[in-house]
Design a protein around this nucleic acid. Structure first.
Lengths: 215, 215
DNA sequence: CAAGACCTTCACCGGATCTTCAAAAGTCCC
DNA sequence: GGGACTTTTGAAGATCCGGTGAAGGTCTTG
């Protein structure tokens, strides 16, 4: 079994260290600091879950549990102990390799999404909540940022004041539509080179506002 | 089916948007920017793999494929298209929830790469759980360390109090969001040269906190 | 089992931000 | 060019938000 897994993973280009019991596994983990661990729960010498727990206490290394235990309970426990994936035997070696790749892909940095929108000189980073004009960072209030971000997710599309209000203060919007105007004004002061002649936040007369599209 | 999945995920504390066909899925994805997508391959109106591929072109959002197709070939293709996990029917809802958590855990934070993070004079060793300012070691409580470590895994990214709370006391968070403020205050006392003018742990007004990026 | 460490909650304060209004300026269409 | 309507703008008062210190509760550890 161990040899099959090793062979397939090496075939796929990975360097593999294989050991045959729990204590050896812990020891090898501490010595080698692998990029990923495939852990068979049925190792002699130590409860598999216990090994998983111990490793998790010491490190965030990706762990794929491989086992004959098919009980739902075991799967849930394994995943909640911090395993990244849980594969039951019999399994396809090709699938194992694909799962190893998927977990590594995610674990080695492929973080969720850049989430950066660029329009002309304007850069909007949704995760960081940062807005830059050229390379000058501008400070926006929460409402201003939310307004800009809302329009930036659909450049060119027109938003009515009501839509913007809802987005900005939640569905339970109530109150003066014109409040949006005030925020738009402040936003323009901050991001427009010439607030009198907006080139980013455009007015759609009689309807609302929209953000210019990237060219 | 959709309702079952929705019910379980909501029960687990997630906010769910459910749609019933391919084009709606793409549309909802673009509009809502979810943290994770559970994708049924058998949606009407569009090939499931095609949807997966399209989303992957636009974003690194975590995707879990859910399907009745049990062929090894399909699994491998799904995972290689960039899916993070592949679950076949019939599946246990509890397992689905556990897998959603596992993928999110990995995607949202726990990047394995660097165990030591340096930001200015601040050094955070995740494996050793040690923090130094300059070469003075500072003692942090478990909660303080967890807070700092969470933000340090994504310097610059903004975390809401709720996200931090969840991370610090597990998914079953409950209680006062502003508890976080107290920990932040204590953390600042320990690591900031001038706690009144933080240069590491920054407040994002109306949203939460973030850690300064390394320059 | 008791001391100490740690966590949670609360209420108050000052500052940041939001809302509202009315006047001024602009736009549209005949 | 003019009337009706819409948007812009500045300012002021109201509101919201984060920082803080203290008090009490809970968990850990010897």
């Amino acid at each position: 079994m161990r040899q099959v897994v090793r062979a397939y993973l090496e075939q796929a280009g990975f360097r593999v260290i294989a050991v045959g019991d729990g204590p050896s596994a812990l020891h090898a983990f501490r010595r080698e600091r692998p990029d990923l661990i495939v852990l068979d729960l049925m190792l002699p010498g130590m409860d598999g879950f216990e090994i998983c727990r111990t490793i998790r206490r010491e490190s965030g290394v990706p762990i794929i549990i491989l086992t004959a235990r098919v009980e739902e309970e075991d799967r849930v426990v394994g995943l909640e102990l911090g395993a990244d994936d849980y594969i039951t035997k019999p399994f396809s070696p090709r699938e194992l390799v694909a799962r190893v790749r998927a977990v590594l892909r995610r674990a080695q940095g492929e973080v969720t999404a850049p989430a950066v929108i660029r329009i002309g000189d304007l850069t909007i980073d949704l995760d960081r909540r940062e807005v830059r004009v050229g390379d000058r960072e501008v400070h926006l209030t929460p409402t201003e940022f939310e307004l800009l971000a809302t329009m930036a997710r659909h450049p060119g599309r027109v938003f009515t004041r009501l839509q913007l209000l809802e987005r900005v203060q939640g569905v339970a919007y109530e109150g003066y539509e014109r409040t949006i105007d005030a925020h738009i004004k402040n936003l323009r002061q901050k991001i427009e080179p010439d607030p009198k002649n907006p080139q980013y936040v455009l007015t759609v007369y009689g309807v609302g506002y929209k953000l210019r599209e990237a060219e």
